[in-house]
Each structure stands twice: as structure tokens, then as C-alpha cells.
């Protein structure tokens, strides 16, 4: 770095952001068309997605390269940390909106609806519920189940094991972090590998759970407000686990390639933070969606 810039690393002009936005634009446009039954929609989405994939690989690759070449000092590192920290805060608030919806529907809306007798005769304040007109929704996509019926997923079966898996993965990623800080490369790779495996297992189990819900339980996105909150919360969480797992896999790959040093490995830490966040959300989900 030249002295002119001081010690803070200031990147040269970059084309990645503009390309990212174009990709996102295509993705959004395609998504809109898909939702409104325009057959070209998916093609736009695929194009946008490919652009995004390309950018992610290149942009992150560039940053990783700069980091490996030692261009970042501790102040740059701190900027990255703050960036990641506040990003996670914003993610927390995103989930808060859905948790808020869950609490509101369950504690307020459903009881109130059951009180308006003259509009919804016979509707009772129970949870889970498909709502006052529930039967009309259920059965549309779930054929196996008798009309008006659906079952929710008990907490102590598969969801419980998923909780165990995710909590364990939080521990394994921490062990991997210790190993990195101690300089045990092999130990690092093994424990990080286990974490990625646990994440994938979680996703696999979650997918079977969804399939079970849709084909056998009659529980779908359309199953009244219960189905809506259930799938929205677990779905967005699942999406985050997917992103987290992919990120950890990339980090694993970089570890194998020999990236990171004992005291300079922010990318690893960022991925770990994200993973802990995803875990914490799951604990909230387990308690409020499944147990209570």
C-alpha cells in the first residue's frame, strides 16, 4: 500500500457491486414474472442467479486474496467485524417480524376471532388452528387427510433431534476455532468438516419433515395462520442454515488450501458468528413453534 492512503486499505474501483445489482434485478424481475404466471420468469431467475453466483465467487475471492496478501490491518479487520455484527442484528430483526406475527396471531388474533360469534359461529380459540374457515383451505393440496383435519409436528421427535444436531454443531465449530487459534490445522479441518456435516444432516432431516407434513399431515403453507407461521419461520431458518452451511463449506475449503493464520482469520469468525446466530434462532423456534 502506498503511504498516500495511510494505513487503511482503500480498494480500487470495483465492478462487482454493479454486477451484483444487475443480477439481483434479473432475479427480482424473474420472480415477479414467475408469481404472475409468465413463463419466462424462471429463465430470468436462473440468469440472475448465475450472475449472483459468479459475483459471489469473484467478489469474495478478491477479498480473500487481499486478505491473504496481508493488505488488511487491524483497523480494516475491525470494520469487517462491525459490518458483520450489525448485519446479524438486522437479520435478528428480520426474524423478529415473523416471531411477532406468531405471537400476535396466537395470543391476540385467534382469541379475538373466536369472540366474534356472529361472524364465525363455532370457531374456537385453539392452537394450532387453520382459522375460522380452515376446512376450505386444507385438503386443497393435502389429499390424504380428511377434510378439516391437519396434524402439527410434535416437538420431541425429529425437531428435538434437530435441536441436538444444531447445538452440537455450535460446539464443534467452536472447537474448530480453538484449533485454528492453537494452530492445529488437521484438528481444525476435522471439526469444521463435522460441523458442515451436521448442518447438512439438519437440512436433510428438515426436508423429510416438510415432505411428511405436506404428504401425510395435511400441514401446508395454506393451513391457516398456523401453517403460515410454521413454514415461514422454519423455512427462512432453513434458508439461513443452507447459507450458513455453504459458507462453512467454503471456509473449510479455504482451510484445506491453507488460508488463515492463528490471529488473522476473520472470515472464519464471521461464518462462525453467523452459525451461532442461526442456532440461536432455532432454539427460539424450537421453544415457540414446536414445544409451546
Amino acid at each position: 500500500m502506498s503511504a498516500e492512503h495511510g494505513s487503511y486499505y482503500l480498494p480500487e474501483p470495483t465492478r462487482w457491486p454493479a454486477i451484483t445489482s444487475s443480477g439481483l434485478f434479473l432475479l427480482a424481475l424473474g420472480f415477479i414474472m414467475l408469481m404472475n404466471e409468465h413463463s419466462v420468469g424462471p429463465w430470468f431467475m436462473i440468469a440472475g442467479f448465475l450472475v449472483l453466483l459468479y459475483v459471489i465467487v469473484s467478489w469474495f475471492g478478491e477479498v480473500a486474496g487481499e486478505s491473504e496478501r496481508g493488505l488488511y490491518d487491524s483497523q480494516v479487520d475491525m470494520s469487517f467485524r462491525m459490518g458483520m455484527g450489525w448485519f446479524i442484528v438486522s437479520e435478528v430483526m428480520f426474524f423478529a417480524a415473523f416471531f411477532g406475527a406468531l405471537f400476535y396471531a396466537r395470543m391476540l388474533a385467534v382469541p379475538w376471532l373466536s369472540e366474534t360469534d356472529s361472524l364465525w359461529p363455532g370457531f374456537e380459540n385453539v392452537w394450532p388452528t387453520a382459522g375460522p374457515l380452515g376446512e376450505n383451505y386444507i385438503g386443497a393440496d393435502a389429499h390424504e387427510v380428511a377434510s378439516g383435519q391437519f396434524a402439527s409436528i410434535g416437538a420431541w421427535g425429529l425437531p428435538f433431534w434437530n435441536t441436538v444436531i444444531l447445538l452440537t454443531s455450535s460446539v464443534t465449530v467452536t472447537i474448530a476455532h480453538w484449533a485454528l487459534k492453537e494452530g492445529h490445522r488437521l484438528k481444525l479441518i476435522i471439526w469444521l468438516g463435522i460441523t458442515v456435516l451436521l448442518g447438512s444432516t439438519f437440512l436433510y432431516l428438515q426436508a423429510t419433515e416438510y415432505a411428511h407434513a405436506y404428504t401425510e399431515l395435511g400441514l401446508t403453507l395454506g393451513t391457516g395462520v398456523y401453517g403460515s407461521t410454521f413454514f415461514m419461520l422454519t423455512g427462512f431458518h432453513g434458508l439461513h442454515v443452507t447459507i450458513g452451511t455453504i459458507t462453512l463449506a467454503v471456509i473449510l475449503f479455504r482451510c484445506i488450501k491453507g488460508h488463515f493464520t492463528k490471529d488473522n482469520h476473520f472470515a472464519f469468525e464471521a461464518a462462525a458468528w453467523y452459525w451461532h446466530f442461526v442456532d440461536t434462532v432455532w432454539v427460539g423456534l424450537f421453544i415457540f413453534v414446536y414445544v409451546l
Binding site: L113, G222, V225
Partner: peptide, 28 residues
Amino acid sequence: PVLAGAITMLLTDRHFGTHFFDSSGGGD
């Protein structure tokens, strides 16, 4: 992000059959 959550639910109510804001499905 809270706005993002709200309009996401709006979008799924519009196109993916959820009932967050529809009283006949228990929403509000």
C-alpha cells in the same frame, strides 16, 4: 428488516396461499 418481513408476508399472502392477514385463516 421488519418492513422486509412485513412485505414478505404480504407477498406470500398474495401468491403462496398463506393467511397472515386473512381472518378466515386465523390471521388479522
